[in-house]
Design a protein around this nucleic acid. Structure first.
Lengths: 277, 277
DNA sequence: CTAATAGTGTCTATTAGACAGTATGTT
DNA sequence: AACATACTGTCTAATAGACACTATTAG
């Protein structure tokens, strides 16, 4: 390529040939998390909360019949954020869902078709809002998570099918909190989506502790017991009531509504306090 | 496009045509941060620390003669991490530098040539390690940062040139910590790099408080005074000695070396304690 | 001696952890 | 009455903030 001397940006752009670059595509994949309630059978007990993720069964190659995250190719006329939003909307029929960019996965052979880089997003929804609108090939999987300092195991179950993935982790550097993930076991997910799911779980776990992000998974009115259950199921541990209520106090507003019918003392309903200090 | 029925993944891939997708390129841009020392003239006083970023002057269109972050196109045979590493290496001649993925910027018109999506990385270096190897068109700019809840102003200065950028910020959601940035003033930087710089500053500020990330900007041996200065310049505020030393105690190891010659009490040299709790 | 940083002791305020207790609905 | 959850009081432990003090060097 001989170098021509351009005298202005306009002149340069007129001559610019994009086809000089190698073929590459970009997709947006959306990790949709939610917390669902499952009845316990005991009229006194609260319904059990489960952390869950929305997966789609692929009906085309590559990875035909494997489960994957909703995703799609980036169109040239939309930002990545818009692409993620579009994908989320076509998959759930819902707008105004909380979403944030998670990470961009760019391994060379993550897709067998061609070089495809994928930017993953994490979306959080209140499951009460959508159970109906799901497309036929989509399904919620509850996640049961076991984690130690070497690996994360996630057991997924949608009622009909269940399987587990194991992803190893290694701190990229002793000075930071970034993990390098590598798949140890994964027979049912397409692409590198096992890594994406694990990254999302880890991001959410972290953010739960220092942001108000959980409220995106709550209905408008909720009891503190329910809220605590959501925290517990994401963090994977029990919390002590008084400590939890101290922390949550300024983030919530008590309403005069109560929820009765539980075979135990009724509980006040609260709302999220958008503008707390 | 008529849909052919494939019977295996191999068959499908044989027929796959990547050229059906729109032209798009991906670049990696590397935000290289460091903290430098500037002499104060007073033999008693410690050298003043300045938070700084490495910029490169563009000598081609687009944005000819503007400053930008070191960056380059992703090659089809390398991961994005590798691309970022390669760019960092060609720009600084240094290997084994701390680096993490920051964010992927995908606005439609961020590059006038064509649709280019950029994944930004943040690298941290100990400035003592490199001042020599800089390419001619690269230069360190000290950053003076003013921040309130509406915007961030950064004044950049490399000794010859100085300019400032102003980037507004808006919380994307009251429930999280994600900001949406929009450039308010920027006359000297190419592309959307003002946004990238501000994102990096914000990421680093955050991580300083809960990780050991600063040690990547320190030489092997350092005094606690120097370390404290680095924290202070990144956080943009003074810290109290006893509190700082309490927090830093388990992250550092005291050596038997001392640093003398400062016109005041000599200070012990410390090293980073890689494996603290 | 002086200016400047190095480093420590300690008191206080705030926050987190733990446990025990009281309250109140449904069956 | 019994069970399960709702909700609060309080003691203690751990952590963070603030200030005052001593130590030590080059010039």
């Amino acid at each position: 390529m001989d170098k021509k001397e351009y005298r202005s940006e306009e002149e340069f752009l007129r001559d610019y040939d994009p086809s000089q670059f190698d073929r590459l595509a970009l997709t947006a994949d959306v990790l949709i998390f939610s917390v669902s309630s499952e009845e316990t059978g005991n009229y006194r007990k609260l319904s059990e909360k489960k952390f869950s993720v929305l997966l789609v069964k692929r009906n085309t190659y590559p990875f035909k019949d494997k489960w994957c995250l909703p995703g799609g190719f980036l169109r040239v006329d939309e930002t990545i954020d818009e692409a993620a939003k579009r994908i989320l909307e076509t998959e759930t029929n819902l707008k105004n869902i909380y979403m944030e960019q998670l990470y961009t996965f760019g391994d060379v052979n993550r897709d067998p078709r061609m070089r495809i880089v994928s930017t993953a997003y994490m979306a959080l929804v209140d499951k009460n809002r959508l159970n109906d609108h799901l497309p036929e090939n989509a399904s919620w999987f509850t996640m049961h998570i076991l984690e130690d300092d070497k690996e994360i195991q996630v057991m997924l179950d949608n009622g009909c099918e269940n399987f587990s993935i194991v992803v190893g982790k290694r701190l990229k550097s002793p000075t930071s909190d970034r993990y390098e993930y590598f798949v140890k076991k994964d027979d049912h997910l397409a692409f590198d989506h096992a890594k994406v799911i694990v990254s999302g779980i880890s991001r959410l776990k972290n953010k739960v502790e220092y942001t108000d992000i959980v409220f995106n998974m709550m209905p408008e009115y909720f009891t503190l017991g329910e809220l605590q259950q959501v925290y517990e199921v994401i963090l994977g541990k029990k919390l002590l009531d008084p400590a939890f209520r101290r922390i949550i106090a300024k983030k919530t507003v008590k309403t005069d509504k109560v929820q009765t019918g539980g075979g135990h003392r009724p509980s006040f309903l609260f709302r999220y306090n958008r503008n707390h200090d």
